[in-house]
Design a binder for these strands. Structure first.
Lengths: 145, 145
DNA sequence: AGTGAAAGATCCTTCTT
DNA sequence: AAGAAGGATCTTTCACT
């Protein structure tokens, strides 16, 4: 599906998405036109879905990260889902199988802010909150086999 | 900390990190030099930590996503941590407070591949696995207040 | 699929206000 | 922070392998 060159291209763009085509071509050992065509096709195929910027949560003042498992009370599922969506500190939320229905990642500035946010859900769902102590594996791509 | 223009810049770069300075300047309503200086300072301050590429897991053949809570057996913590690290299908792992020690996100091609990976941990930790059914909130930035 | 050269377009930064 | 301008840089096209 992806050959070695495609993987080199993705690796390079992962490290710096703003690299010029010329530099990228040198890195992967192809000419500029071929490299350009490769990138175009990776986008066309949907393998590359976009180019984006990474922010530092700490630099933005979000010193705390929490993982919250959320089990809506009977009949409250949609209300809870809306509430999650409207809480901008929820940076990611998955609907999952099992006893818990949702699992969400929150960025907060302080424990008191976390408490505040959880209070808003308290009468609509059972929650189970864990504080993130460290990140043994930071966001990375899966194998590009 | 960030003013309105900084936020516009980050919004624009989030949507397309490869946008040219000229276009970015037009979007935020400043001149190119000012915009260039803004971006430079955002990087310098560490707010912008990098530019990267987004991949489509589905296009790569990872049709299944799982959330696994992992509680290492007594004395097995380091072995488990190493194992997690060496499993490339683990795209993210946090060390958290509470009964479970780790929580990991896995991309897999099939249930059988998931089973295979979990089997490797089975004699070193208790695991609790949930399949991701949908993503009510896809990865997004927290408020840039 | 890929190369190499070349032209044309685009861009970024510098300088002045 | 704006605006103009110069010079560098880049990307794509084309003919060929």
């Amino acid at each position: 599906m992806l050959d070695a060159v495609d993987r080199l291209i993705i690796d390079a763009l992962t490290k710096d998405a703003r690299i010029s085509l010329k530099e990228l071509a040198q890195l992967v050992g192809l000419s500029s036109p071929s490299t350009s065509e490769r990138v175009r096709r990776l986008e066309e195929r949907g393998v590359i879905s976009g180019f984006t910027v990474e922010l530092s949560h700490e630099a933005l003042g979000y010193m705390l990260q929490a993982i919250v498992r959320i089990r809506p009370l009977p009949g409250k599922l949609h209300i809870v889902q809306d509430l999650i969506n409207e809480t901008p500190e929820v940076v990611e939320c998955d609907k999952i199988t099992g006893d818990d229905c949702f699992i969400a990642r929150l960025f907060v500035r302080s424990i008191s802010q976390l408490d505040e946010i959880l209070d808003r859900i308290a009468d609509k769902a059972e929650t189970n909150t864990s504080i993130v102590k460290s990140q043994p594996v930071k966001r990375r791509h899966p194998p590009l086999a």
